[in-house]
């Protein structure tokens, strides 16, 4: 992989993390929702680099095109511009920050040090070949093969969510 491609991935990861910080701590919920859009785009770029081109497309269509627009609609429907201030009520920051430090540091340490030192012997050529191969046909075959039962279950779940959401949101 060339240096330019690696720089793009590093920028995408930085975009993910900085947008996620905005999502968590920005006082304005509308700005937080827009920041979430950029976090989703960064994650999609990371998927492309991990050889998951089809999943990256699904991520962009479902999250960036669907969920973010839905969230923005909900923000604008629940906060009338002149009626309620858009500002989120601030809670005390101390609990989340203490929790972050206590939990995040060991997790990052484990993924940095222990996993790196216990790396299995998988040939880098095999990983590169996997990342470069086309996945869409394989995913389609797996969805109608080994993963048929979860595939059918998720269709029922989506139907239930569709009907349930319409039933909940309808007036009276």
């Amino acid at each position: 992989m060339t240096t330019g491609l690696k720089i793009v991935l590093l920028l995408a990861e930085l975009l993910c993390v900085s947008s996620a910080i905005l999502v968590t701590f920005h006082p304005n919920i509308l700005h937080a929702a827009v920041a979430l859009l950029f976090a989703f785009l960064g994650v999609a770029v990371m998927f492309v680099y991990a050889g998951a081109d089809f999943i990256a497309g699904v991520q962009v269509i479902v999250y960036v095109g669907g969920v973010t627009v839905l969230v923005l609609f909900a923000v604008m429907l629940t906060h009338w511009l002149y009626k309620v201030t858009l500002r989120d009520v601030r809670k005390k920051l101390i609990v989340p920050i203490v929790l972050l430090v206590i939990l995040l540091v060991p997790a990052v340490y484990k993924s940095l040090v222990e996993l790196a030192s216990s790396s299995q012997n998988i040939a880098p050529e095999r990983v590169a070949e996997f990342a470069g191969s086309a996945k869409t046909a394989l995913i389609g075959q797996a969805l109608l093969g080994n993963y048929l039962l979860p595939f059918e279950a998720i269709t029922i779940l989506l139907l239930g969510a569709l009907v349930g959401a319409v039933g909940l949101a309808r007036p009276k």
Binding site: I29, V43, K91, P96, L99, L100, V108, S111
Partner: peptide, 23 residues
């Protein structure tokens, strides 16, 4: 894995920190 861990705990912090249900 590091990016995943950071995103996870920022999400957890958002769940604890936000009062707004959309947040």
């Amino acid at each position: 894995l590091c990016v995943g861990a950071i995103l996870f705990f920022l999400g957890l912090a958002a769940v604890l920190y936000r009062r707004n249900a959309i947040g």
